[in-house]
């Protein structure tokens, strides 16, 4: 026989509310993780690339360009040099110069530059080498783009954190309102137990224990709802995050879902796994607070 010393908490809509809030918090955390990962990847890529433009109207341009490529290849930290074809440069400049007409490249009287894309380790200085080999060439480091992407990533991360904090506040409010309603509904029972000499903590702990259990179950339900959404999100973001291990399409088998889930960042999986426990803790603390404050009104 259970040892009843205090009324519990009527479940009401608490598990459903917590499930939905867990879902929202999980999506915000997944979004946060995705944004951090994408921003870091883009920033890294941008910091590790430089564009060199070589005017084609200088004397002996092809030979001097080859000499520059050799000099760059000999440089420590340079990992790849890609020489863009004229067609590719034309395509890149098409928004500004318009599409080529017939065999004419660019605008009449305007010759297109030769473009080299140089991949290098962060911190590698190409400027001196380029200046020695081909002073007319212009080096554009993509560092500033990396910094802008970093700032963008930081802003988006801040927004995602704000969403997580707002959701936590809404969870606390929802639990608080639900507990207050439940306590109000059981006012008579609480009054009786109090009048027989039950300690405030005994009453509040019983109600808080039930609130924690219901919040935990709601959190688990929210996680179950979250799994397909997180997997879909991971699949959608994978091409941008260079995650070659992910399937290109939404997984349709259980194995496919598992594969997608298993390559999610372990920190994200830990955060998502902790959501039901966090919900239970919030439920317990909120219920304790609400009930203790309410009991203070009794003599």
């Amino acid at each position: 026989m259970s040892r009843r010393v205090s009324p519990g908490l009527r479940s009401g809509s608490l598990p459903l509310l917590v499930a939905l809030m867990t879902l929202l918090a999980g999506l915000a955390l997944a979004g946060l993780s995705g944004i951090q990962s994408l921003a870091a990847g883009w920033s890294q890529a941008a910091r590790s690339a430089a564009t060199i433009e070589i005017p084609t109207d200088i004397p002996n341009a092809p030979d001097r360009t080859d000499a520059l490529v050799h000099a760059l290849k000999a440089l420590d930290g340079v990992t790849n040099i890609q020489k863009l074809s004229t067609d590719k440069v034309q395509d890149l400049l098409a928004p500004w110069l318009g599409q080529p007409v017939g065999s004419h490249k660019g605008l009449p009287g305007l010759s297109l530059p030769q473009v080299l894309i140089v991949a290098h380790a962060p911190g590698t200085d190409l400027t001196a080498t380029v200046h020695d080999a081909l002073p007319e060439a212009i080096v554009q480091e993509d560092l500033q783009w990396g910094q802008r992407l970093e700032r963008l990533g930081t802003s988006l991360t801040g927004c995602a954190w704000l969403a997580v904090i707002l959701i936590a506040a809404i969870v606390i409010l929802s639990i608080g309102i639900t507990v207050r309603r439940s306590v109000a509904a059981q006012k008579r029972a609480v009054d009786i137990v109090h009048s027989l000499g039950a300690a405030d903590l005994t009453i509040s702990s019983h109600i808080a224990g039930r609130a924690a259990l219901l919040s935990f179950l709601g959190g688990i339900a929210g996680l179950i709802l979250l799994t397909p959404l997180t997997t879909s999100l991971a699949t959608t973001l994978s091409p941008f995050a260079h995650q070659s291990a992910l399937p290109a399409t939404f997984p349709t088998t259980l194995d496919g879902w598992w594969t997608t889930l298993s390559i999610l960042p372990s920190s994200l999986l830990k955060e998502l796994g902790a959501l039901p426990l966090i919900a239970a803790c919030l439920g317990w603390l909120t219920a304790q607070g609400v009930v203790l404050v309410w009991l203070r009104r009794l003599p």
Binding site: R3, R4, P7, R188, A189, V193, S195, L196, G197, T202
Partner: peptide
């Protein structure tokens, strides 16, 4: 009477001893 309707008679009467 002030009995707790959701509890059994046994639980109602046992409450003072449990406390």
């Amino acid at each position: 009477y002030r009995l707790i309707g959701e509890w059994t008679v046994f639980d109602n009467v046992a409450l003072p001893l449990r406390l």
